[in-house]
Amino acid sequence: MSHHPTITLRNLLPAVFADERQCHADSDIWLRDTVEFMQSTHYLIKAASGKGKSSLCAYLYGDRTDYTGNITVNGIDVSNLSTDRLVDLRRKHIAYLPQDLGLFPTLTALENIRLKNNLTSHKTDDEILGMLDTVGMAGLVDRPVAKLSLGQQQRVAIVRAMCQPFDILLLDEPVSHLDSNANLAVSRLIEKEASANNATLIVTSVGNDLALSRPVIMQL
């Protein structure tokens, strides 16, 4: 079965690194002629803090365009999309977990997830509760997010991110606050969902890696 690239990067470099190009000569991503992320393949991008992991995620999600080079997602340049096309890309093609999670503290865990699922109608309530159960959050679904620990919030945000159809699942340090058991449970769920969608999985890590089975490891 042949896979096609879902994301292609060409000579990509954050604008902020423009004056220190030689420092990124060893990067598998920055300043490479062409970097392709293939369908149904799982990538673990590892880097020390400050190397631009979150910037890369924001570029791929169309949130920021402060870079040189070129990014195409499913063949389309994401730097200059119209509002309608960017919203469509976010609802149907790229699922994203930002590092700051983007949860609403006054809403409960389940309400936070429904807020997105109401938009996409991708999962049933039972499926959502099943996913939360898988990551050990079954008893906390009705608790306001403000009263959850960071690790619990991370799991809620991961489940929410997957409540949509996607070709690309983009997770920015998804398990930075999880112990190894929770990491394993989350990893199984993420891999299952990514496989079900034949998606490209891109996960960044600053040290605590998501426990993926056979990831392609890249250094930033």
């Binding site: 949130d63 309608d84 976010r90 983007g102 609403f104 997105k116 938009l119 996409t120």
Partner: peptide, 8 residues
Amino acid sequence: ALMAIGYH
């Protein structure tokens, strides 16, 4: 945050 999770 709402726009980030797909709200138009």
